[in-house]
């Protein structure tokens, strides 16, 4: 992801965006790395999301990501789930809520979800999720992209 992922004008905004520090959230067998990548706009999910009430930590986390993306004026947030071995239904419920939040803020950032071409379960679920990101006025707010692991 290039600096083009960051909104605003000139280098000051980019420097501000770069000031966002990476941090890691770990819950049971899941690991989430926040604000990775050159433009500090990538969220990596890894491991297995399987707790009985995973939404209790996932929903606030995704909401926090959403608020941070708005504050930073990002044009795109990338959610990389390639290293996610398995997730129960809680992840998809939490993601669709996030997508709804994005749609409620027209003209802000888009969500790009990258999935592992070797894990078709990710693709099957994401194909449906993408529908929730379609805005008739502005087009797709959610893009999905299959990549190598």
């Amino acid at each position: 992801m290039s600096d083009a992922a960051v909104g605003g004008e000139g280098g000051q905004r980019i420097m501000s965006a770069a000031a966002e520090k990476e941090r890691v959230v770990e819950r049971a067998t899941a690991r989430v790395l926040l604000w990775g990548g050159p433009a500090k706009n990538v969220v990596h999910m890894a491991g297995v999301i399987r707790e009985v009430n995973a939404e209790e930590w996932l929903a606030p986390l995704l909401s926090d990501i959403h608020q941070t993306a708005l504050t930073r004026g990002l044009k795109e947030v990338e959610l990389d789930i390639r290293a996610l071995e398995y997730a129960n239904a809680a992840l998809w419920r939490a993601l669709v809520v996030w997508i709804k939040q994005i749609r409620e803020r027209p003209g802000t950032y888009n969500l790009r979800v990258t999935w592992d071409r070797g894990r078709r379960w990710q693709e099957i679920a994401l194909t449906t999720l993408r529908v929730f990101g379609f805005d008739p006025k502005t087009g797709d707010r959610v893009l999905i992209e299959g990549l190598q692991p």
């Binding site: 998809w92 419920r93 669709v96 809520v97 709804k100 449906t128 999720l129 529908v131 929730f132």
Partner: peptide, 9 residues
Amino acid sequence: YAAALLSAV
């Protein structure tokens, strides 16, 4: 699946 996700939201 889509209807269930919509209901969740």
